[in-house]
């Protein structure tokens, strides 16, 4: 049986306590929420904290206030809320994470901070030893691109691309106080340093932009309808001005070490209606920079080709929703 290593487990009841415990325990301590990402990683010895500080007992992290979602809401709690346009895409993405059981445990914050994934990395210690380890843990080379100076592990969050697309803001609390970061600036395109969050900062909550005519959808590609991480996620946000696209953002998940916005694709849509032509143009723009690597399920060239299809389908869904009366979810 795979077991956890020995560690100290702490359960703070307030944010202040949590920060203090982290400060006391130092760099060997990590925060945990649902544990569905960290504990498997600890069992496989990817992450080896000596102290684990649970955030699940802190009431402030589990609050919901109109457009603010606490980071420790479970994904099930997020999807159980009555759907409204505001959170429909967030809810869709949350519902597509893993399995019902893991959604009962995993949290919003956990998914947004999900460790980047790679099938050279998400393996046991013994397996990784067979390839002499990799850059992300215990080794020197990124086997995905052996001459690369950086790690190419993949951002595999479903919810993060949506947050980046809709322009959500994350509120962080650390020893230096509070700061608010736009979702788009929370992530780095680096498999190791994939978050701008400092290890001693806590993601407190996420603020969704106020409704002012925007809409968003999320489409996910994976082998099975359950369990699987995205090999491609497409989040599309559109700011409508009557029937015209005033602004648009297209963000891809599962193809880089961060949720990758493709600004050219948004530009291709701006100022016109969502026509077949503009959809095709945006899909083409999104296809170009999409560079999946050989470290997830499926053949990488197929995954790249799917960018075009999935972006088109996401845009078609937004168009249908705009033009079909009564589908105003």
């Amino acid at each position: 049986m795979l077991r956890l290593p020995f560690f100290t487990y702490l359960e703070p009841k307030s944010l202040a306590d949590a920060l203090r415990m982290k400060a006391d325990a130092g760099p060997d301590a990590m925060f945990v929420a649902g544990g569905t990402d960290l504990y498997p990683n600890m069992k496989r010895r990817h992450q080896e904290p000596k102290t684990v500080i649970s955030l699940m007992g802190i009431p402030e992290l589990r609050r919901v206030e109109s457009t603010t979602l606490g980071a420790c809401l479970t994904l099930s709690e997020l999807t159980a809320r009555p759907p409204d346009r505001l959170t429909a895409a967030v809810s869709t993405a949350a519902r597509l994470v893993s399995t019902p059981l893991l959604r009962n445990m995993g949290t919003l914050g956990g998914n947004l901070c999900l460790d980047t994934r790679c099938n050279y990395y998400n393996q046991t210690y013994e397996w990784r030893k067979s390839i002499d380890f990799c850059m992300k843990k215990d080794g020197h080379i990124c086997w995905v691109a052996p001459s690369s100076p950086r790690c190419w592990a993949v951002s595999s969050s479903d919810v993060a691309p949506v947050m980046v697309a809709i322009g959500a803001e994350y509120r962080l609390l650390g020893p230096q106080g509070e700061r608010v970061v736009p979702a788009g600036r929370f992530y780095h395109n680096d498999g190791i340093n994939y978050l701008t969050k400092q290890p001693d900062e806590i993601l407190v909550d996420v603020r969704i932009p106020k409704p002012n005519g925007w809409d968003a959808v999320y489409h996910k590609l994976r082998r099975r309808g359950s369990f699987d991480f995205p090999v491609l996620g497409v989040a599309v946000w559109i700011q409508w001005n009557r029937k015209t696209v005033a602004d648009a953002r297209i963000v891809l998940g599962g193809v880089a070490s961060y949720p990758q916005e493709v600004p050219e694709a948004g530009t291709a849509l701006r100022g016109g209606a969502l026509s077949d032509e503009s959809i095709a143009a945006a899909a083409e723009e999104a296809y170009r920079p999409s560079k999946p690597m050989d470290n997830t399920d499926f053949d990488l060239s197929w995954r790249k080709q799917m960018t075009r299809v999935y972006v088109s389908r996401a845009l078609q869904q937004l168009r249908d929703r705009r033009t079909t009366p009564g589908l105003d979810v």
Binding site: Y9, E11, G34, G35, Y39, P40, S76, L101, L102, N104
Partner: peptide
């Protein structure tokens, strides 16, 4: 009352 995976829940929790 909620179904969870006991392999990823700490006994202490």
């Amino acid at each position: 009352g909620t179904p969870v995976l006991s392999c990823l829940v700490l006994g202490l929790a």
